[in-house]
């Protein structure tokens, strides 16, 4: 068991180094995200004029939700993993993994973890600069169960994020260009993952349906636990459904990998 872990530890360390090379790219993206936060603050600040609550939450609670969402994006969100995997399949770099006793999913996942560690820490930099402006808006509920349930929710969200990106990457076995699929799915994910607005502001039936889809567990779910938008019963039910999606997506990824390899012709390499 442990020698197997060593392999992936090395993959993680190499991933760490190669992602530190892209520190500027991540840093620049983080700065843009803080500007996006300004957009969010201005828009919702104006929408809240003349009313204390929207959907049962006050302005500060909603703004805190968006700040947590931003942090989540950099700590657990998939960036261009789909594209990297797609490239490896296309130029035949993937062939080497077929000959070695290494699991491609775990190898890629180790690199993903390293990348999120780098991008997450870098995102903290502009947020720290903005902190004096943000401080007065941040309000967090103080129940401890929120941390206890929120942390596993965030970890499973990371697995879901990565696995969906991984599956999109594997589509390269069938399609030459996956970019448009990825951006199409990103648009859906932006809405159903609660990145555009908190999902609880949607009509009740829509909110309920979204809870059965994987997107809900990518972003909205952990952020909503941390920021007090879900109660304990909803959080526990959600964790069960989230676990179901983790298993289901891992199954799909495995299926695509097996099927894809049958079509794979190992060009280049």
């Amino acid at each position: 068991m442990f020698p197997a872990l060593t392999k992936y530890r090395h993959a993680f360390l190499i991933g760490l180094q190669s992602n530190i090379v892209y520190r500027w790219t991540f840093g620049v993206r983080a700065v843009f995200s803080v500007f996006h936060l300004a957009f969010v603050f201005i828009l919702w600040g104006a929408a809240y004029k003349g009313q204390a609550t929207i959907g049962g939450f006050d302005l500060n609670q909603t703004l805190t939700y968006f700040v947590v969402l931003l942090l989540m994006q950099f700590f657990i969100g998939a960036f261009n993993e789909d594209y990297q995997i797609s490239e490896e399949i296309r130029n035949g770099l993937i062939n080497q993994f077929l000959l070695k006793p290494i699991n491609y999913y775990l190898y890629r996942f180790s690199i993903f973890v390293a990348a999120r560690l780098v991008s997450g820490l870098l995102a903290l930099v502009p947020l720290l600069f903005a902190f004096p402006l943000l401080r007065d808006y941040l309000v967090f509920p103080d129940e401890t169960w929120r941390i206890l349930l929120g942390v596993p929710a965030a970890l499973m969200a990371a697995i879901i994020q990565f696995t969906i990106a991984y599956c999109f990457g594997l589509l390269t076995f069938w399609f030459l260009e996956i970019q448009s699929f990825v951006i199409l799915s990103l648009a859906i994910e932006t809405v159903l993952g609660g990145q555009m607005f908190p999902l609880d502001l949607m009509p009740a039936w829509f909110f309920r349906i979204s809870q059965f889809l994987p997107y809900y567990y990518q972003m909205y779910f952990p952020s909503a636990i941390f920021t007090g938008r879900l109660d304990q019963a909803q959080a526990i039910e959600g964790l069960a459904l989230q676990l179901f999606w983790v298993i289901a997506l891992l199954g799909i990824a495995n299926f695509l990998w097996r099927r894809g390899l049958r079509r794979h012709t190992a060009v280049g390499g």
Partner: peptide
């Protein structure tokens, strides 16, 4: 969505 909860921005 925002206008479902407010009348003006």
């Amino acid at each position: 969505v925002i206008y479902a909860h407010t009348d003006e921005i």
